[in-house]
Simulated scan of single mutants.
Amino acid sequence: MKYSLLIVFLSFWLSVLSCGKSAEAPAKTGTGTGVAIKRRPASIGIIGDTANVVKTVNGGMVLMGGGADVESAFKWMIDRSGGGDVVIIRVTGTDAYNDFVNKLGSVNSVETLKIDTRELANNDTVANIIRNAEMLFIAGGDQSDYMNLWRGTKTGTALNYLLQEKKVPFGGTSAGCAILGGFYFSGESTSVVSNEALANPYASNITLYNNDFLHAPFLQNVITDQHYLTRTREGRSVAFLGRIYKDWGVLAKGIAADERTAVCIDKDGKAQVLGSSKAYFILPDAAKSPEQFTAGLPVIWKRNNQAIPVYEVQASVAGNGNFNVANFSAAEASGGSWYWWSVDNGQLIKVLQ
């Protein structure tokens, strides 16, 4: 009788332990704002329904300048997502965006994927989660990680599917914004400051790439920059644009956002600036190429102190200014101020037009 009771007792606890180790059981991860399912590789947290939904989306791009997130820009994207599935991707960090985004609007789910190896970036399930998204946002971090880990993988292909075919609202902040232009600065050696870039536009740490990663609407001939006024990056934008023109023969444009600021571009290419600081649209002119742009020498790009027209827009919470990035037409710009930028022996000069 004692042995029978012991067998029953052991059987019961073996059953409990077996159930606790089931592959079907969810595992809580991240900051506790969501639940990641073991069968969803790279997922570090999800809020909402893991079942895919199909919603009608209204495309658009958000170029966010880093620092504090711009809530109104996230709401702008959520409104265009149709209330579908939101996916956040990153290489480092937590699932903190899940709770943040979920509180800003009604969506089916918010999930964070931490894609920190090329194996994960080439995982079919990871790529499929991305392809099923109705909104995607790339968190801040290090853009060289994104380039090295995601470029040329199934994740990269899935991201371009969202941009080019599904046309979902798609954004990024800081490093996540840096890779959204067709041209981009990788920062793989180290960052570069304006004075350094203008003193020698061919410094070894100025590593630029040409349309080999993401292919966002209207941004193929654009290079972005972030933390713009906070880190005094205006001069390096001029150096980047000069390099693109000298090295590839492309008269690229620049779009830059300061911290706490986002440039929101709708599906027709009409941009507004949301947040609390400023954004810039930089439009080099082929008829006004640099007078001196050589390795080891400071940049000279004066053209009578009218080298590069730049449109400055002060952000607002609801959105301010209008600029058409589909054609970068100066005639269609409103709500901002035009400046001339020029460079005299490596020193940036800004003059109100």
Rank of each mutant, 00 (worst) to 15 (best):
K2P: 07
S4L: 15
L6H: 02
F9T: 12
L10N: 01
W13E: 13
W13P: 10
V16N: 05
V16C: 07
A27M: 08
A27H: 10
K28M: 12
K28N: 05
G30P: 03
G32M: 11
G32C: 10
V35L: 08
A36V: 00
I37H: 14
I37L: 15
T50S: 06
A51V: 05
N52C: 09
T56L: 06
G59R: 00
M64R: 10
G65V: 10
G66I: 04
G66S: 04
G66M: 08
G67H: 03
A68E: 09
V70A: 11
E71G: 07
G83P: 04
G84Y: 03
V86K: 02
I88A: 06
I88W: 02
I89Y: 01
I89Q: 05
R90G: 06
G93T: 10
D95W: 06
N98M: 04
N102Y: 05
N102E: 06
K103N: 13
E111V: 01
K114R: 10
K114W: 05
D116K: 15
R118P: 02
L120H: 05
L120R: 07
N122Q: 05
T125F: 11
A127P: 01
A139W: 01
G141N: 09
Q143S: 11
R151T: 14
G152W: 06
G152F: 08
K154R: 14
T155Y: 00
Q164D: 07
K167H: 08
P169K: 02
T173E: 03
S174Q: 13
G176S: 03
A178I: 03
I179K: 04
I179T: 10
E188R: 14
A203Q: 13
I206M: 04
T207A: 14
Y209R: 11
N211K: 12
P217T: 02
N221K: 06
V222M: 00
I223G: 11
T232F: 09
E234N: 13
R236P: 06
F240V: 12
G242Q: 06
G254P: 05
A257T: 15
E259R: 12
T261Y: 11
A262P: 01
V263S: 06
C264Y: 01
I265L: 04
K267S: 08
D268N: 15
D268F: 07
G269E: 01
G275M: 09
I282W: 10
I282E: 07
I282H: 09
D285K: 15
A286N: 13
A287D: 14
E291N: 15
F293S: 04
P298Y: 07
P298L: 12
I300A: 12
K302S: 15
K302W: 15
R303T: 15
N304Y: 07
I308C: 09
P309T: 14
V310Y: 11
E312S: 11
A315L: 09
A315Y: 08
S316Q: 10
S316L: 12
A318P: 12
G321S: 07
N327F: 02
G335A: 13
W338M: 11
W341G: 08
D344T: 13
G346N: 07
I349K: 12
K350E: 13
